[in-house]
Design a protein around this nucleic acid. Structure first.
Lengths: 207, 207
DNA sequence: ACAGTACGAGACGGTTCGTCTCGATGGATC
DNA sequence: GATCCATCGAGACGAACCGTCTCGTACTGT
């Protein structure tokens, strides 16, 4: 956990939580574009200055609120990273393990509590480079590392080719799923993720 | 071309062009979030009502302006689709053809004239489903179909497995590139796109 | 020549922005 | 327990944009 709370001792924990709750609720109810700082403040029963004092933008508030939500839900990627029980399972069958995790990801991305904020943060990150790097580093990167770890183990077990770069290899199935979700290029389903794993593992060329 | 111009005969072509130019220039200069309808109107020397009369939103204006830019540049995906000379080349060497096209895509995504508007439209589409579907249908889809066509030809030539769905197979190399660009998860380069093609064609598993 | 519509310009009320200023509150220190 | 002082809730403030509306003008097709 290291040092996560030495900030300011006079800071009101109650207000912080109320702001997180209000931000997430508003994004879920009226969508990100119609969520305003004023609205968050009013709903949280807080002065606007209290928000501007601790966060730099609407997106910044939402990023922290979402990280908090993920942490509370025990779904925080960073938590997974630090607590080995959240690593991708290794049953010895790489294909089955990947399919299971990707199916779980499909479920998670469909969870209405996560969908709104996730889309908002991803969208803002596409245009705002600084926020984008923060979103990738804090939300995406830890999860990606779990895939890299699992692929590394698969290399040791001879399940995939030893000369591959795991950080690139994982993109063959993670990125298509991400794009279908972000851009809605096509529906994503269990069947789809299973197919992706098969295609990625065995390649497009005849063998 | 079919019916693309019967709209309203009294519509001012000069204003339409001025609005496109102003929108693209402002997005390039101050970024999408700080680009306003008022700003576009002022820069184009046009009344606000003229914009609201023909378009429903800032994003809508930018989408049409960008499509126009792409068309003018002879880079319009729809144009490629209709004019066979823009199809993905088929030299009989699938890997080489894909690598060449992906390298060209890297160049295109780095073109400063395209980067700002592309990011803005992609970002808006992530959050606004209606616009997202329009962006995918008008900008992305035509290009994707070219990949599908090339993969279909590769199947006929025995270069890739006949049981694959080309629409899914193409995602193995297109989506990773898209994600690196959209989310900046890692730098994208010629070396990277070449690697993607190799990984996708030959798969991750040993053979 | 005429009629009608889109045009440029900008006024309008409404919303949200980010800053600033109140007096109140409530931990930290002695 | 008294004192201190940063943070607190509240909201006033001017600025920026929103989307609508209303002018008088200019163009376009008949």
């Amino acid at each position: 956990m290291s040092t996560t709370k030495p900030v300011h001792k006079r800071r009101s924990e109650k207000s912080r939580r109320a702001i997180y709750d209000a931000a997430l609720a508003l994004v879920a109810e009226v969508g990100y574009p119609r969520t305003t700082v004023e609205g968050i403040a009013a709903r949280a029963g807080v002065g606007k200055q209290t928000i501007y004092r601790w966060w730099s933008s609407k997106a910044d508030v939402l990023l922290e609120a979402f990280l908090d939500l993920a942490y509370e839900s025990g779904q925080d990627p960073e938590q997974r990273q630090e607590q080995p029980e959240y690593a991708i399972p290794d049953t010895g069958d790489l294909a089955a393990d990947l399919k299971a995790v990707l199916r779980a990801t499909v479920d998670e991305l469909r969870d209405p509590r996560f969908e709104g904020p996730s889309r908002a943060l991803a969208a803002e990150g596409v245009v705002d480079e600084e926020l984008g790097r923060a979103v990738v580093a804090k939300l995406l990167e830890p999860s990606l590392q779990l895939y890299a770890d699992r692929l590394r183990a698969a290399q040791d077990a001879g399940e995939i080719r030893p000369d591959l770069d795991p950080r690139i290899a994982l993109e063959l199935f993670v990125s298509p799923l991400a794009q279908r979700w972000l851009q809605r290029t096509a529906p994503f389903s269990y069947e789809y993720t299973d197919t992706l794993v098969d295609y990625a593992l065995h390649g497009l060329a005849p063998r």
